[in-house]
C-alpha cells in the first residue's frame, strides 16, 4: 500500500514578467519541477540564488498561481492559503502594533475562533517556543531570535498540517541560528507536521531534513534529491562530526560549486579557464 503524498508537485513551471504563457516575453523561473513530500516529512529545499526556491514555496502554499503543471495537497486539492498550512517568513512579519500574544492569536482571529480558545491556544504555543512571560511585549522589544519564535508560535497555533518556512533563520546570528535549529527540531519531533524548509545553508538543511532537495538555477529545476539517513534526535550527539554528514555536505557543496561556476559572474571566484585575468584586475596594488 502506498501512502498519498502530503504535497505532490507535478511538472510545475512558472514565468515572471509580462507574458506568463510564453517564454519570449517573461523570465522562466521554474521548469518541470516534480517531487513529493510525504506526510510528517521534513524536507529542505537548497540551491544557489535564483533557483526559485521561494517561488516554489509560495506556489505550494497557494499564495501565487501555478503557470504549468499542478500541485496537489493530500492527492486531491490544489493549494489554498489557510489554517491547514502555516508560513514562517525570513523577516518574521509580525504585526508591530500587536503584542506577542495578539500576534500569535491573529490567525485564529482570522479563522473566527472564539476569544477563549484564541487565548488558550496562543498561550500554549508561546510557552512551547519558550516565550512565557513575554505575552504583553511588542515585537520591537524582542531580539530577532525571539521574534522568529513568535513567528513560529503563530504558525503552529493554527494547528497546521504543513509548515512552510522560507529561510526563517537567515537573518539571525550564527549562535542564535543554531539554537533555533535545535528548538525547531524539538518542536517538530513532538508535532511531526509536514515541513518544507527553504535555506541557503547546507549545514542547516542536513541537520533538519529527512530529505534534501537540491535545485539548480535558470530556470529553477530539481537537480537531485538526497535522503539524510542520520538518526534523530540529532542535537543529542556531535552531528557535524558524523562521516555521513561530512560526505553529504561535501557532495552538495561540490554540486552547487559546479552550478555556480557556470555563471559568468561567479566563475572568476571559483576557478576555471581564463580566470587569471579577472584575478589580476580585482587584486589591489
Amino acid at each position: 500500500m502506498t501512502t498519498i503524498p502530503k504535497i505532490d508537485v507535478r511538472a510545475v513551471g512558472k514565468w515572471f514578467g509580462r507574458g506568463d504563457q510564453g517564454q519570449a516575453a517573461g523570465i522562466e523561473v521554474l521548469r518541470d519541477v516534480t517531487f513529493a513530500v510525504m506526510p510528517g516529512e521534513f524536507v529542505c529545499l537548497v540551491g544557489p540564488s535564483g533557483c526559485g526556491k521561494t517561488t516554489l514555496l509560495r506556489m505550494m502554499s497557494g499564495l501565487i498561481p501555478i503557470d504549468r503543471g499542478q500541485i496537489l495537497i493530500d492527492g486531491t486539492r490544489p493549494p489554498v492559503p489557510g489554517p491547514h498550512a502555516g508560513f514562517v517568513f525570513q523577516s518574521y512579519r509580525l504585526l508591530p502594533w500587536r503584542t506577542v500574544l495578539d500576534n500569535v492569536r491573529f490567525p485564529l482571529e482570522i479563522q473566527g475562533k472564539d476569544a477563549a480558545e484564541q487565548r488558550q491556544r496562543a498561550a500554549t504555543y508561546i510557552r512551547m517556543v519558550g516565550l512565557a512571560g513575554f505575552e504583553q511585549r511588542y515585537p520591537h522589544e524582542l531580539s530577532g531570535g525571539m521574534q522568529q519564535r513568535v513567528g513560529l508560535a503563530r504558525a503552529l497555533a493554527m494547528g497546521p498540517e504543513i509548515l512552510f518556512m522560507d529561510e526563517p533563520f537567515a537573518a539571525l546570528d550564527a549562535q542564535t541560528r543554531e539554537f533555533m535549529q535545535i528548538a525547531l527540531s524539538r518542536i517538530w519531533e513532538a508535532n511531526r507536521v509536514t515541513v518544507v524548509f527553504v535555506t541557503h545553508s547546507l549545514d542547516e538543511a542536513l541537520f533538519l531534513a529527512d530529505r534534501v532537495i537540491l535545485m539548480r538555477p535558470r530556470p529553477g529545476a530539481v537537480e537531485e534529491v538526497l535522503a539524510v539517513p542520520l538518526p534523530r534526535p540529532r542535537w543529542t550527539y556531535d552531528f557535524h562530526a558524523r562521516s555521513e554528514f561530512v560526505a553529504l555536505r561535501a557532495h552538495l557543496w561540490e554540486r552547487i560549486r559546479r552550478m555556480v561556476a557556470d555563471q559568468p559572474e561567479f566563475a572568476w571566484l571559483l576557478g576555471g579557464p581564463g580566470d587569471d585575468e579577472a584575478h589580476g584586475q580585482l587584486r589591489p596594488v
Binding site: 499564495l63 508560513f87 517568513f89 523577516s91 504585526l95 479563522q111 493554527m158
Partner: peptide, 28 residues
C-alpha cells in the same frame, strides 16, 4: 508593508480582513 499583507493572506485572511487588520492599523 507588503510582507504583512502576504503574511495575513497566508493565514487565509480575506481582502476585507486584510483591510481591517493590516492596512488600517498600519495607516493609523
Amino acid at each position: 508593508d507588503w510582507g504583512l499583507i502576504e503574511a495575513a493572506r497566508s493565514f487565509g485572511a480575506r481582502q476585507s480582513q486584510v483591510f481591517r487588520h493590516i492596512m488600517l492599523p498600519s495607516a493609523l
